[in-house]
Nucleic acid binder design. Structure first.
Length: 879
RNA sequence: GGGUGUGUAGCUCAGUUGGUCAGAGCGCUGCGUUCACAUCGCAGAGGUCACAAGUUCGAGCCUUGUCAUACCCACCA
């Protein structure tokens, strides 16, 4: 017996445990069928589930469950990411509470501490994914720092290095002074601010009294200036080219050079060149062979190459201005809108800094990654995202992969005492290589830098499947079927996976990439902790159940759009679950069981034929939409069928049968209802796995678990059952009339139908009892020819004829007149439209014949209806 | 500066190739509890599909422009 109330908290967790313990998420490797696989976008170990995950994982789980039911060999590969910077920050913060810094511990101890932390609190998000119902094969859970994955990282690194695709270079990189590491371009957020533009002047060497005027937003960097650039085209200033000027305060002589980087229209036309601290100036410096003077320490304080060593850039800026003012060189300061780079993790200002770093030759790797998208081997869904992808890939810069952190994959690089580099997968191999190189045993020191987290994530699609070891999983499930992720990590992850996979596997990592939007708050604002508008999915699940949240995500997911989280809507889908629950209870109470060997093709009652056909139609629709990744269409199709068709009509239509006495009809209807309900549970299962499973288990003894139940294959559409649609139309018309005319619910009405076709007459005969019961009529019958229409009869157009409703003084005739007039107006408007169209010569000539015919048919129909309404109006005019 | 979206009912949004597309949910209004369900039922109101021009026999749907709005990339010394 089902509980009276739908209470998801009673069974959701229990059901999940059963799935996991029974191994229901594992692919059946013995089976020969087609494979379907997804690798989860690995959440950070430090992560807790947010609504973005809830969306992402729900979509994946729907696909996974759907394909599993399609009988495929299905693997959803789970795991987490070591998230270098994020995790190191979390652990450092914890240590800070005890007043310890990571330097107190030392590298080795610190890493131990991180592993300990991971063991204790790293699994939160995986527990939460289970609560959401994610059917990942947890027995295969991976971590980017696992031994296996680390081996993959080392192997790829060495291979890339030996292929010349990884190189070391002293370059200007984005330096995060708080974290003390380089970061990639993607990890830098450009933020608009109103800063200042400082105007001052440098004296020209030799001649007194002549100056070159400079504008800059960062005066403190002047100590790193090694030139001033002027454009050759600059008529006013070009005479200064070739002369020298004197850098004030430090009184260093620097040349005035010709370079087109200096735009005569901007600023003063003369640009100070600081090659070691500005990306553009770096290029200028290279062109002119300028010295590069580094003026910053790793914590972004000024160094001993400046007079303000130890000061922050802000302090130094003030000091510089003061000094320049004292020297009478300061001219003006203006407000200036500008963008300032910030570290996405640390939130501090990023400084371009000259350091030794390691780079991946992304432009080379991008070639293949672009090609396979161009030729469709990997398809973005929606397609429009490939533009974004191409745009970025075609302009890609070398990827800085070294990080001066402790937590991460330490690079497999060893140095000889003379700086010779040995890149090998293991220390032993490195030493062997060194011995070969030097001709004797030598000591090596290992590179301390670790790799960017995204380096290992880039291998995720094959490293999690056991690469580099050749194995059955890799063979079966690579390339994976589809990657589901948000547009915000196309560059971070999708692009890198494409590059790495094409390099290592010569095959795409996934055949399709489904990109979804962001989950925003109810007003469409981005959710953020600082705004305080985040919603914890766990709380939503607690309140409405995981099924409701999942269905919400599916129903709202339309391609290429963000989702606004709406609690009332989640509540609505909880109500949907309640509705289904109660419908199942109705079936249970009426003893609906599926008899052995029941075939929906054998049903005789019109109503049963009808629901079977509708169930098939809904199934076809859901299937088609899921195949096309149209989640909202799929969800709405099943929603509409369950609520609008099964509950609103079928159950109501079966009541007269169940409360009647025809044993044969009752038996057939019980069987059919049970069959349809089972169909609902199967088709709804990918969306709402918990309630469907709970009902599946409770309603009958089952030979197969719902999670493995076969997805229905609808071969041919069953014939429709027109009598039921006809009856529904009639019932709705009568209900509408009752409501519009304010007829009391208790009033038992007698309805006549006039001028009915023979089909309609036949339908009426079949449906008479049903219609009476659902429309609360005393009777409904054909209006005999020659019978007189009395004055108290309300008339309403129905199908090809007229519906007559005698009202012995229960009705307000003024209101009725108004209603008829309104209808007449409508008809007139439509008729005008039809007339206009049909009198249009070119329409009649050029539109397809069936369209024209349809238009004519509608016109004729409207004409008839108009006559009927006018007659009815004339009839009641005196009442 | 370059690029990509979005603008449809009070709100949040569907609307796949131009011709049953003017829709859903919530909200609102009226009526209704004899037992599947008030986490409900029945009925209803409400929209010049941002604006303008164009293509077409026919335009939320295609083209161009305008306005509004969101985001991405690059850069502004």
């Amino acid at each position: 017996m089902l509980e009276k109330n739908y209470n998801p908290q009673d069974f959701e967790e229990k059901i999940y445990q059963d799935w996991e313990q029974s191994g229901d998420f594992k692919p059946d490797m013995r089976q020969s069928g087609e494979a379907f696989s997804i690798v989860i976008p690995p959440p950070n170990v430090t992560g807790i589930l947010h609504m973005g995950h809830a969306l992402d994982e729900t979509l994946q789980d729907i696909l996974v469950r759907y394909n599993r039911m399609q009988g495929k060999k299905v693997l959803w590969q789970p795991g987490t990411d070591h998230a270098g910077i994020a995790t190191q920050m979390v652990v450092e913060r914890n240590l800070a509470k005890e007043g310890i810094s990571r330097h107190d511990l030392g590298r080795e101890k610190f890493i131990e501490t991180v592993w300990k932390w991971k063991a204790q609190s790293g699994g939160t998000i995986c527990k939460q994914l289970r609560r959401l119902g994610a059917s990942c094969d947890w027995s295969r859970e991976r971590f980017t720092m696992d031994e296996g994955l680390s081996r993959a990282v080392r192997k790829i690194f060495v291979s890339l290095y030996k292929d010349g695709l990884i190189f070391k270079a002293k370059k200007l990189v984005n330096w995060d002074p708080k974290l003390g590491t380089a970061v990639s371009d993607l990890e830098v957020i450009q933020q608009e601010t109103v800063g200042k533009m400082y105007y001052y002047k440098y004296p020209i060497e030799g001649k007194t009294g002549e100056y070159i005027h400079i504008a800059t937003t960062r005066p403190e960097t002047m100590f790193g200036d090694t030139a001033v650039a002027v454009s050759k085209e600059n008529e006013k200033l070009k005479h200064l080219i070739g002369k020298n000027c004197i850098l004030p305060i430090v009184n260093r002589v620097i040349p005035i050079i010709a370079d087109d980087h200096a735009d005569p229209e901007k600023g003063t036309g003369a640009v100070k060149i600081t090659p070691a601290h500005d990306f553009n100036d770096f290029e200028v410096g290279k062109r002119h062979n300028l010295p590069m003077i580094n003026i910053l320490n790793e914590d972004a304080t000024l160094n001993e190459n400046t007079p303000f060593a130890g000061m922050s850039t802000q302090e130094a800026r003030q000091k510089t201005i003061e000094k320049l003012t004292e020297l009478g060189l300061m001219e003006k300061i203006e407000d200036h809108p500008m963008v300032i780079p910030y570290g996405d993790r640390s939130g501090v200002v990023i400084e371009p800094l000259m350091t030794d770093q390691w780079f991946v030759d992304a432009p080379k790797l991008a070639v293949e990654a672009i090609r396979v998208v161009e030729n469709g081997e990997m398809q973005f869904v929606p397609k429009s995202y490939e533009k974004t992808y191409f745009e970025w890939m075609r302009n890609i810069q070398p990827w800085c992969i070294s990080r001066q952190l402790w937590w991460g994959h330490q690079m497999p690089i060893w140095y000889g005492s003379d700086g010779e580099i040995f890149c090998e997968e293991t220390e032993e191999e490195a030493y062997a290589a060194a011995e070969k190189h030097y001709g004797k045993k030598v000591e090596l020191t290992r590179e301390t830098d670790v790799l960017d987290t995204w380096f290992s994530s880039g291998l995720w699609a094959f490293s999690t499947l056991g690469w580099p070891d050749d194995n059955e999983y890799l063979k079966t499930f690579y390339p994976t079927s589809v990657l589901v992720t948000g547009f915000d990590i196309i560059f971070f992850w999708v692009a890198r996976m494409m590059m790495m996979s094409m390099y290592a596997m010569k095959q795409v990592p996934f055949k399709k990439c489904y990109i979804h939007g962001l989950v925003r708050d109810e007003q469409g604002r981005k959710m953020s902790k600082s705004k305080g508008n985040t919603v914890d999915p766990m709380e939503t699940i607690e309140k409405y159940g995981a099924d409701a949240l999942r269905f919400f995500m599916a129903a709202m997911e339309t391609q290429g759009r963000d989702i606004n989280l709406s609690e009332s809507r989640v509540a609505g889908y909880r109500n949907f679950a309640t509705k289904l629950w109660n419908a199942a209870r109705f079936c249970e109470m009426n003893g609906c069981k599926l008899p052995e060997g029941f075939s929906p093709d054998s049903v005789k009652l019109e109503v049963n034929k009808w629901i079977v056909a509708k169930a098939d139609a809904a199934t076809v629709e859901v299937t088609r939409h899921l195949n096309d990744f149209r989640f909202s269409d799929a969800a709405n199709a099943i929603y509409q069928f369950v609520w609008g068709t099964f509950c609103d009509w079928y159950i109501e239509l079966t009541k007269p049968i169940f409360y009647g006495e025809n044993a044969e009809d009752i038996a057939e209807t019980k069987a059919t209802a049970a069959w349809v309900l089972d169909r609902i549970l199967v088709v709804l299962h990918p969306f709402m796995p918990f309630i469907t499973t709970e009902l599946w288990n409770n309603l009958a003894e089952r030979k197969v678990k719902l999670i493995h139940a076969p997805w229905p294959q609808v071969k041919a559409m069953r014939p429709a059952a027109p009598a039921i649609d006809w009856a529904i139309d009639l019932i709705s018309t009568i209900r509408s009339l009752r409501s519009e005319m304010n007829l009391p619910a208790s009033a038992k009405l007698h309805v006549y139908l006039k001028n009915m076709s023979s089909d309609s007459a036949a339908y009426l005969q079949d449906m008479q009892t049903l219609v009476c019961s659902l429309a609360r009529l005393e009777n409904v019958e054909l209006f005999a020819d020659g019978q007189e229409i009395t004055k108290d009869m309300v008339q309403n157009v129905f199908k090809e004829g007229v519906l007559l409703l005698p009202l012995k003084g229960v009705v307000d005739f003024a209101a009725e007149r108004e209603r008829l007039n309104k209808e007449l107006e409508n008809l007139n408007r439509n008729l005008e439209n039809y007339a206009r169209k049909l009198s249009n010569q070119s329409f009649v000539e050029r539109a397809p014949a069936n369209v024209v015919a349809e238009e004519k048919r509608r016109q004729a129909e409207a004409m008839e209806n108009k006559t009927k309404v006018e007659e009815a109006l004339a009839r009641i005019v005196g009442l």
